[in-house]
Nucleic acid binder design. Sequence first.
DNA 1: ATTGCCATGTAAGGGGTTACATGATTAT
DNA 2: ATAATCATGTAACCCCTTACATGGCAAT
Lengths: 201, 201
Amino acid sequence: MPRKSRTRYSILGCLTVEPQSGYDIKRFLERTVAHFWSESYGQLYPTLGTLEEEGLIEGRDVPGERGQDKRVYAITERGREALSGWLTEPPEPVRPRYEHSLKLFFGFNVPPAVSLGHIEAVRKEAAADLQAYRDAEARLAPKAQAEPTSPAPYWLAVLRGGIRYSEMMLEWCEETEALLTGLPDASQGAGAGRAGGRGKA
Amino acid sequence: MPRKSRTRYSILGCLTVEPQSGYDIKRFLERTVAHFWSESYGQLYPTLGTLEEEGLIEGRDVPGERGQDKRVYAITERGREALSGWLTEPPEPVRPRYEHSLKLFFGFNVPPAVSLGHIEAVRKEAAADLQAYRDAEARLAPKAQAEPTSPAPYWLAVLRGGIRYSEMMLEWCEETEALLTGLPDASQGAGAGRAGGRGKA
DNA sequence: ATTGCCATGTAAGGGGTTACATGATTAT
DNA sequence: ATAATCATGTAACCCCTTACATGGCAAT
């Protein structure tokens, strides 16, 4: 048994912002929390059906802005209760699998240039993210000050985390590039890489 | 179709350090990369069988230190090639799902004390992690200096990332506690939380 | 005796992604 | 025409976790 689905709650959360269709929810998530959360249609639409059956959300057909119908869902009182319950439970410690870190951990099996190349990609991504986050911060920070009962303070807190994370990654990339640059190629020569191979990180 | 399995490569990577049994690999991962990678027995043992069939590893039965047999696997030349190939490919951008961030993002639906409680837990965890990382750093840093062809420099790079991450989290927790402390309870009262609910983070 | 560690597995089952299918509208 | 966006879904597939099963040895 894998962990319980959290798609239900991400949907409920989105619907506390405003009533939305499945398509709207996907776009909302992509515009706001894409860097730490995402939902696929394959999860989204079936879950919307389940939530409606359970009475946690209510859908109604609304003529779309371009002639096409859309099914817009609103959260119900029971839905709010379910969401509150989940939000109140302590977050389960996620044990993520960072492919990037794993590749670096085993990087001594390939020339240092390989790891350096990957880090350069990470650095560029962090720099781009940071720029985007800073732009968003400029828009969100005033609102968080002016409207303390809106979602804005919470969204700003999450955003500040993204900013700090990106800044930290930029610094770490520079440090690591310095650490790996000039390192001999430990992957060449049979068994050469295993000198002092024991140890504890 | 989900993403391709990376269990194969984490096993191969472990076996470049030294020949190990399935049980050894599990313990090795837990002692070294637990905070960003893990394998369950349910994945580990079947994958060991597959890798051996494919000729990427070779197992042999070894009498255990306490009378019991263990099956110790060593990576083959073809295994090294497969690992190198994977290590060289650019890491796929992982889109992790941070339950903690999502709960904070929707935290305006519950009293601020709830989010503050979660953040306090995160802070404690980060502090404990940081202590453990610093201890490990004290052991690993000299080795990384002294043995540049060993895995140590790479393991130190990863470890430095953990240290920077934990430090960053500690700072972010303090900042966020300041931001959320004293915030009015936006979750009370029907519809009160939806003032100014539009926006872009 | 019983707990704990060493050691190897299997079974079940859900969560989530990817790819496919469909179709309307709008812009180039 | 053709591409892009809006919009809703289904099908396949598998990765991974959890839980269970088994058993030997060591220590209390």
